[in-house]
């Protein structure tokens, strides 16, 4: 039997942003850190599990699985994100928009990621229901992420969690699309 393809998606962001919650909603199967077997593909990951990674698998079809990696929420673990992000489709970056500590940490993380990779990143601004939540502009400014795709969301809501992954995938597709073809299609896009 042919090997299944594996697509990787990273879920990152400071502590308590909602990473575990999101991964739970979009996985068919979840492994707790301690369950991870030292298979080849996951051996590196296993070495990291002691610091509280999340890992979920989404079965897409007979030929494709998605591996969702939740990387720990402190900038001192940025290197893990760097290792895991190789070949990944992109990153979902969650941030508790009500916590100054999280935002300070998130700023360092975000800066590091953008310096290391051009792959798509979607920012999910969580904890919007909290009194101290920054408005989206202020949050984008504080994170240094003014041009990022930032979406307000509550990962405890399954639809919101799905939305973030969908947003990331749309960005991936847009990245991969051939711009020249777009121009032809635009000709059919007149308002009649």
């Amino acid at each position: 039997m042919a090997q299944k393809d594996i697509a990787k998606i990273l879920v990152t962001g400071p502590f308590a942003a909602g990473k575990t919650t999101l991964i739970r909603f979009v996985s068919s199967e979840q492994l707790l850190s301690k369950d991870v077997k030292a298979t080849d593909a996951l051996s590196r990951f296993k070495a990291m599990t002691t610091v509280g990674l999340d890992f979920g698998i989404l079965h897409v079809d007979d030929d494709l699985d998605v591996h969702l990696f939740g990387t720990p929420g402190q900038s001192r673990f940025n290197f893990m994100w760097k290792v895991l992000s190789r070949g990944a489709l992109g990153t979902i970056f969650l941030i508790d928009s009500s916590s100054q500590r999280a935002i300070d940490e998130g700023k360092k993380m975000y800066k590091y990621y953008r310096g290391k990779s051009d792959d798509p990143i979607v920012i999910g601004a969580t904890h919007r229901d909290k009194e101290d939540a920054r408005d989206l502009d202020a949050l984008a400014d504080e994170l240094g992420a003014q041009d990022a795709n930032m979406i307000p969301c509550d990962p405890r809501n399954k639809e919101d969690s799905k939305m973030l992954v969908l947003a990331l995938l749309e960005d991936v597709m847009r990245d991969e699309a051939d711009d020249e073809l777009e121009e032809e299609a635009l000709d059919d896009f007149e308002l009649m």
């Binding site: 969908l166 995938l169 597709m173 991969e176």
Partner: peptide, 16 residues
């Protein structure tokens, strides 16, 4: 690129 595109598109369908 088309491999990434194909994966992204299939995952999109799945999650929708």
């Amino acid at each position: 690129s088309s491999r990434r595109m194909s994966m992204a598109s299939r995952i999109l369908d799945k999650i929708r």
